[in-house]
Nucleic acid binder design. Structure first.
Lengths: 264, 264
DNA sequence: CGTTATTACTGGCCTGACCAGTAAGCTCAC
DNA sequence: GTGAGCTTACTGGTCAGGCCAGTAATAACG
């Protein structure tokens, strides 16, 4: 008879968590990832060559390469054939975030409504914060993008859209919050990616562009005046009017909720 | 003399975009990715074995494996050693998004202030939307988490914190926006990860937990009443009071801006 | 008929090799 | 001397083939 009965021995001891087998290539990824996060490896610096890494990690080249491919697909490093300096550490880019968010949209049935709702929240908040925190330089940067938009009306939607994005980017920068900046950028990209073909045709009219310009000017006015609430409200409503057409009517509830927020 | 002068031949023709060399493994990743996005491969289904993929793609095993490792790190498939059915197509998970957003926080020197500011925006918006959109079931789900919080006070901070998270999760779900849900989850995790040690000691007092509980109850009341503005305002102020101590005084401006928003 | 052992696969990992690039350093004509 | 061109010693990209440990369907067994 065993002194320790089966199934009971560990039932009230330490808590264990599930473990997954860790592959060799994952260990390598972790180490390099950590080195980058810690700052031991800075953008522009080079990793040792694959063959050198093989000896340092004590793994075979295919294994090291699997790790490098993962890091590369995550946007952390870049390998160039023939480069005698080895793989390069890349500066941070939101490309990976964009990829994942795009995937979220394509996959998880994230509806256009949710996307635009999120955009309204982010852009509204950015405008609100910008109204309170903007410096004079940032304010004039916004004014410049508005001027460019104005001139771009006759050059067609392509140019106009670029200036439009530049304005929102300037507002996001003035909000002094890089999370807002990056997320807004990503969501904007996802929205545009999903409807770019339609929007190019629908909005390629001077009248619509002039209206959009007027809306942007209103937002800018509110930001200049330091009126965060107004900036957010106008910004949200503008986005709603611009994009509501791409959302099925029965899904517009959440969007309207955001527009009507802060109203009388 | 050449009939086509150098450097001018293409200067006013079609526009070309920069190209990057495409590796074999990337082509494989793309094909499988596309098949999943198109729905040709559904979660639970299996990919052919590596050796079978080798013949189908006409590439070598290391190359096929590099592709699989990338897909695996993206959370699209999972390979299990010895599984005769081949790699499994996984259901969508926000793990990839979480990973990338965590990277953004670690990498891009996102400050505590930005993190909390973003959290206030997301949580406030979630509360606001939940106030308008919540179903009865979702409301009672929130009530249950509040009840758990109340009971957890005497069990210590660990338990209390879990129930706290559950409440915010319930609110996020009721906001009907999975982007808010995921982003909020990530940011919350990042914040807690940065201060968990400090907060465990500082907040492990029944008095502080009771105060936190009261705040949560206020938010719940506003959501029950359908008052989106109040829900957002209370939610934001609660977060500010809870976390402001971890932000250097000279960086609290943006946070206060969000609290004072919608006041007066 | 249920249980156990077999077997034919799976993925994880390695060795060794070939090729096409790159860039530093060398050569050589000017 | 100095610049243009060539050599060379690397780099990463890809392949072929092999060994091992693990899995699960199946065959053999009680």
């Amino acid at each position: 008879m065993d002194h320790v009965r089966r199934g009971e021995a560990l039932s009230d001891g330490a808590q264990f968590r599930q473990v997954a087998p860790v592959r060799l290539y994952q260990r390598i990824v972790e180490q390099i990832e950590q080195a980058i996060v810690r700052g031991d490896l800075k953008p522009g610096q080079r990793l040792p060559s694959e063959r050198e890494l093989v000896t340092q990690f004590g793994a075979s080249r295919p294994t090291v390469r699997e790790a490098l491919r993962v890091l590369e697909s995550d946007g952390l490093v870049r390998s160039r054939p023939g480069d005698p300096n080895g793989p390069e550490i890349l500066p941070y880019s939101s490309a990976g975030l964009t990829k994942q968010m795009t995937r979220l949209v394509q996959f998880d049935n994230v509806s256009m409504a949710e996307l635009i709702s999120f955009r309204m929240i982010l852009d509204g908040s950015a405008s609100s914060l910008a109204a309170r925190l903007r410096s004079e330089e940032e304010l004039s940067a916004m004014e410049r993008t508005i001027a460019v938009m104005s001139e771009a009306i006759e050059k067609g939607y392509e140019e106009f859209s670029k200036a439009d994005v530049a304005f929102h980017e300037a507002v996001a920068v003035a909000s002094r919050n890089s999370l807002i900046e990056v997320c807004n950028q990503v969501v904007r990209g996802a929205v545009l990616g999903l409807i770019s073909d339609k929007v190019a045709h629908a909005h390629n009219s001077a009248a619509l562009m002039r209206e959009s310009l007027r809306h942007h000017q209103e937002v800018l006015e509110a930001i200049r005046a330091g009126d965060g609430q107004a900036a957010a409200r106008i910004s949200r409503r503008k986005l709603y009017e611009y994009y509501a057409g791409y959302v099925p009517e029965n899904e517009r509830g959440p969007l309207l909720a955001l527009v009507e927020d802060e109203e009388g």
